[in-house]
Amino acid sequence: MTIKEIQEEIVDEFSMFDDWMQRYEYMIDLGKSLPLIDEQYKTDDNIIKGCQSKVWVHADLEGDILSFTADSDAIITKGIIAILIRVYSGQHPKDILDADTNFIDEIGLKEHLSPTRANGLVSMIKQIKMYAIAYQTQIK
């Protein structure tokens, strides 16, 4: 699936929820259930420190496909990470660079991606894009 298709699928899933409670419960479930990163990659090199919560990101390139694993010490942050990983992981670096995060607005989680929230998520997306730039040059 393309990034756009995955984003539409997520927007579709979230449209079934009636209120914020259900959205948050879903994210908390995502945050709880997914093993997101191999412990060996939870290193200081991979850490993004926010004032509020920490995020770890690790990237792997196989062929021309870039995959991500990530984690956070806060569960809601982790739930959003799970959604972002679903969107960005397993894609071509160029497609990752071209993608936007507007779908986050549509699923009602905009506030968590605010730069002022200092939860590491904005920096995480920046980091994902940096990896995509770096690996794109490798592929060439």
Binding site: W20, M21, Y24, I28, Q52, S53, D73, A74, I75, I76, T77, E111, H112, N119
Partner: peptide, 13 residues
Amino acid sequence: SIHPYDIGSILDK
């Protein structure tokens, strides 16, 4: 062991 960010986010709602 609940992270303060999680509690704060729900209280905000």
